[in-house]
């Protein structure tokens, strides 16, 4: 299972990198979203993928097989942050498109010496 997920992470990263290297604003943002999903899956995988009981001690008896809860908590936080950043990026890209009239990084590059 870990192997499958690792391959999936690799695919997500490949897609993300490819999209980020393109020149369109929207593709860059979608690419970074792919990458952040890849990292979230990676966070989940390092906590070991297994089925088991919740990590709760009942009547002083510890469960022999329990799922590590911390990666899930971390992923939740990271999802919220990634969501907010992506939303902001989309708004910014739209505003760039409105104001500058281009969605191509090559054409919005501008000159270092112009102000």
């Amino acid at each position: 299972m870990e192997l499958l997920i690792s391959i999936l992470i690799g695919i997500l990263f490949a897609i993300g990198t490819y999209m980020m290297l393109s020149r369109k604003l929207l593709r860059i943002i979608i690419g970074s979203a792919f990458m952040s999903h890849g990292t979230l899956l990676m966070l989940m995988t390092v906590g070991k993928l297994k089925r088991g009981a919740p990590p709760i001690v009942v009547n002083g008896v510890e469960n022999p097989v329990y799922v590590d809860p911390i990666p899930q908590a971390l992923i939740l936080t990271a999802i919220v942050i990634g969501f907010a950043t992506t939303a902001f990026a989309l708004v910014l890209a739209y505003r760039c498109y409105q104001e500058l009239g281009v969605d191509d990084t090559e054409r919005m590059r501008g000159n270092f010496d112009e102000h």
Partner: peptide, 9 residues
């Protein structure tokens, strides 16, 4: 706008 987008990415 131009520079913020780069900074953001």
């Amino acid at each position: 706008l131009r520079e913020s987008f780069k900074y953001l990415i």
